[in-house]
Amino acid sequence: MQTSAVYVITGGTRGIGAAVARRLAGVAGRGLVLGYRGNHERAAELVAELDSAAGPVRAVPCDVADQAQVSALFKAADELGPLAGLVNNAGVLEQQCAFTEITADRWSRVLAVNVIGLAMCCREAVTRMRGSDRPDRAIVNLSSKAAVLGAPGEYVDYAASKAAVDTLTRGLALEVAPYGIRVTSVRPGIIDTEIHATGGDPGRAARLGPAQPLGRAGTADEVAAAVAWLLSPDARFVTGTTLDVTGGR
């Protein structure tokens, strides 16, 4: 089934990625391609929930650290129609530890996914978008407030990778602006998702949420709302910037 606009979401079957998919699904003529790394059952359940006659939804296994899998993800998008948007949500977070305990292998894993993988997805998207005259072509990268705060004693490597995302966003946005392609990033703060469990601290959002200026942790859907706005025509004059969704943190 060919559609008039396709959106690729990496890490698209859980947390913020799944929330973005729910925000974007069900629009006539819009197709979604959701990259995911390992949980086939969860991917199938989300596709069953969102796939409709209005707009098809496909889930494609994709480790963004593997260039061949990234290429396959975008080829799957090509089968549905022209690419209108990319949401780079895939990311890895390792166990909390002191900086001196971060090994070279861990640095390589984090940067391979959070920076290089994201960059390769941007490259695939820009290659397709720059030859189009669509007015609504946009890339949204998921950063983190850790990029500014540094995450000392927790995961400086993750924070550094997200700072790289912010810089990449700015530079790429300026480079592709003449083609009419917009590039932005969203910087979530303390958001109640399962990523904290991945970092070895499943109760982190509940513990730190009340200390935020707005008095609580955020939700995946609140971040997804910002992403959806940045992809929309309402943000047509917004590029090269990073939007904090942090509850004032």
Rank of each mutant, 00 (worst) to 15 (best):
M1D: 10
T100K: 11
C97K: 15
V64C: 08
R30Y: 04
N39M: 02
A98N: 10
T184H: 04
D201G: 08
A25V: 11
G26S: 09
A235R: 10
Q212A: 08
A98D: 13
E194H: 11
I191M: 11
L142V: 12
A18Y: 00
L50E: 06
L73Y: 06
T167W: 02
R14D: 14
A72D: 14
A48Q: 11
P135T: 05
D201F: 13
S132H: 02
G150C: 11
L231G: 03
Q95I: 14
V64G: 05
A125Q: 03
R216C: 02
P233Y: 00
D51E: 11
D63T: 01
Y158Q: 07
A53M: 08
G11C: 00
R207T: 14
T193E: 05
K145A: 09
T3F: 12
A18M: 04
A59K: 05
R106F: 05
V33S: 10
G31P: 01
V6D: 06
G180N: 08
A5T: 01
G200W: 12
A44I: 07
G26A: 03
V27G: 00
G171T: 13
E154Q: 13
S144G: 10
A225Q: 11
I102C: 11
S52V: 05
T169K: 01
A54D: 15
Q2E: 12
A159F: 10
A98S: 12
R106L: 14
A65Y: 09
M1F: 09
V110W: 00
G12H: 05
A112Y: 09
N141R: 07
L50K: 08
T242L: 00
Y158D: 07
T13K: 01
R30I: 05
L32M: 11
K162G: 09
R204M: 09
G17V: 14
V27S: 04
S185W: 12
R182I: 08
V87C: 08
L142C: 05
C62L: 07
V126P: 03
A5C: 01
